[in-house]
Amino acid sequence: MSSVYRTLSKSSGKEVEAEDKSNGASGGMKKNKQRVLILSSRGVTYRHRHLLNDLAAMLPHGRKDVKFDSKSKMYQLNELAELYNCNNVMFFEARKGKDLYIWFSKAPNGPTVKMHAQNLHTMEELHFTGNCLKGSRPVLSFDATFESEPHLKVIKELFLHMFGVPQGARKSKPFLDHVMAFSVADGKIWIRNYEIREVEKVKGDDKESEEPATNKGKKSKFQQDKDTDVSLVEIGPRFVLTPIVIQEGAFGGPIIYENKRFISPNHVRSDLRKAKAGRHNARAEQKREGLGRKAELGLLGKGELKDKSGLDTRELFA
């Protein structure tokens, strides 16, 4: 009996020690406390709304709010964030009922990143087989390119705050089953979400089979830990962000970065229209020139040749 007690007390003592250690470690640094206010402007399409819902479902530390009814007075979002006790704001701004801009902002005092979202595909419309727990903490996978430029570093930090679920968040689940990937390609940020599936590793060596079967039960557990490999299955959503501008404050303040390679979708559309109009103009011009040439040769209507030469048959045999 005493031996049992001893072992118990020993183990509990160890646990206490371990806890102390962990506390000591965490006490040294700030606790990661993040809350994200997720909301959209008026005039979002169903696709934008579904994307917002998908993201909200993945963020247990998020607070979804009703549509915000102003595009000019964005600073009001700060008050809203304060009201809801949030220190991050993710604001979906829809324009013209088709273009989506997403603002990522640290609420009280910046910075703010404005991005243009393209190629949106929601979880529902992508028929991927992956699935994950609601509120499990994702592994955030960043492209190495994020470390190369200051503005990308800022963007990465914002993503880390908003998409990374802080440890011990209220509704978070204790296991890890998905990865969010952020990659930079072609000047844009591509976001993907994958489920982590553990699969049996393909055995290449015969070591296991040679071992005696006496401690099989023990071994199977061991195997489960060691001999699985990770495979990924996509869950969705998919979207691509183009950073446009970074402001120093939260929805205000000086602009500290501007992407000159960003072309507004309005420009793209107007260029397309202009190109089309240009085609028509060119054709009209050609027609006019052709008419002019004909007129010069006197082939239009009854008009006669302008200058009759003396050798014209009508002159000669008049």
Partner: peptide, 11 residues
Amino acid sequence: HQSVVSSKPTA
């Protein structure tokens, strides 16, 4: 933090 930076640029 649970964030990983890849070893080489994906691009």
